[in-house]
Design a protein around this nucleic acid. Structure first.
Lengths: 224, 224
DNA sequence: CGGGTTTTTGAAGTCCATCAATCCCGGTGG
DNA sequence: CCACCGGGATTGATGGACTTCAAAAACCCG
């Protein structure tokens, strides 16, 4: 994977890394910072699709297209490692392990996406918020297995709203209720999940980065 | 791909092909019939995740897991070709083309999913219905480029509701309005899109099975 | 021609959206 | 060090889209 991280580009918070309908030139590996992908609906409405944190691979699913299907925006100061699309060919040729890893990432991402679909389609506002926090925490745990229930969470309420199909007003009110019920504490850019078990139960949360089948990777890479 | 279709199993309409938390044993290629994947929330709520039609590959994104993350149910009488997970290893080893094809399918599916997220998160009930019909039509066009705006659409209103985060009552009312506006005709198990251009505009529909970058597949398969 | 499922229709209720004003907090400059 | 400023967050009042509950109608199949 290290070969994918040769280059480095820095962005400030709020920068648009890539717009919609740009040419698909590269994927990015997030070295530092938080980002999100989104589509604008043209009348001011916006849907945020995914959040990205350090270690994530961004832009994989645009590869089969000529133009990007969504925009990419930074939430915080960020450092990205772009890797040109045309240089992926040689990588696929030489390293089955990298190919398999990217393939696996894409499959896992898809399942996470299905969970988010469930959340937006069938959960109440408060539960959608909790579900997103649980998902983010679960992702952060991959690169930091010491992570407790109190962590950095730099997503403003407007962006939470656009990610969850709600409005900032509802986010604010739901947050207040969740806090009054003693389920979370969310101040500034940090959250604490005060009763994670309860939150996981309410939202029917599944830890998709765990319970992975180790034999799958062997299958994929031919046992190397 | 033909090697993936050796076996064949038949199901009647409404059969549960695979439950949630079953062991992940194989992927399926849909030879005949329509299916959907769904998660139950336990209190009667249900979210339908994806619909599948002949030619689709089902179950790819479960491969990295030990247990299935959603159930698989038939909408109509169906014929599936199961392909055992453990036999995928040899396939990946011998055919980069098949590997690349499956990878590409998974990436495209992901983008379709992001579109559905936008639909459920930010579109009104009528537009969600239209968006789903457009997505299905666009998928059907791959295997039938003669397909007009009038096609077989065997999704009951209860299932539409569970797919779109709505209730059957709202589906029925929204359908009536769409028909009165002369935008669609939807009777029994058939739909006709009377003004596709208008529907695509309203829902900001993108044809994700088109505008594919042909060079990508070369990249992926090393030019074979 | 029944009996069960699916769809439609009506009335009432709820959750979230909208609009708009106020508050809070961090950053800036005097 | 503090007053000022601006964006994000909060709060209140009102409205609307969708839900819920319930019943009737239409459809489908044997």
């Amino acid at each position: 994977m290290a070969t994918l991280e040769e280059d480095e580009v820095e962005f400030r918070a709020g920068d648009v890394v890539r717009g919609t309908s740009d040419e698909v030139e590269s994927i990015y590996i997030v070295k530092e910072g938080w980002l999100f992908s989104a589509v604008e609906l043209g009348d001011g409405r916006r849907q945020i699709l995914e959040f990205f944190v350090p270690g994530d691979v961004v832009g994989l699913h645009d590869l089969p297209y000529e133009q990007t299907s969504y925009e990419l925006v930074t939430l915080t100061e960020s450092t990205l490692c772009p890797f040109p699309k045309e240089r992926l060919g040689p990588v696929f040729e030489t390293s089955r392990a990298v190919t398999g890893l990217l393939f696996t990432f894409s499959l896992i991402d898809h399942v996470i996406m299905l969970d988010r679909l469930k959340s937006i389609g069938r959960l109440a506002a408060k539960d959608r918020i909790a579900h997103l926090m649980l998902t983010v925490r679960s992702r952060l745990c991959i690169t930091n297995d010491e992570l407790g229930d109190h962590f950095f969470f730099p997503i403003p309420q407007a962006e939470m709203a656009d990610a969850l199909g709600l409005t900032p007003v509802t986010i604010s009110r739901s947050k207040a209720e969740l806090q009054q019920e003693g389920l979370i504490r969310w101040q500034r850019r940090e959250v604490e999940l005060l009763d994670r078990a309860a939150l996981e139960k309410r939202t029917r949360f599944d830890a998709r980065y765990q319970n992975l089948d180790t034999s799958w990777f062997t299958t994929l890479c031919g046992g190397y």
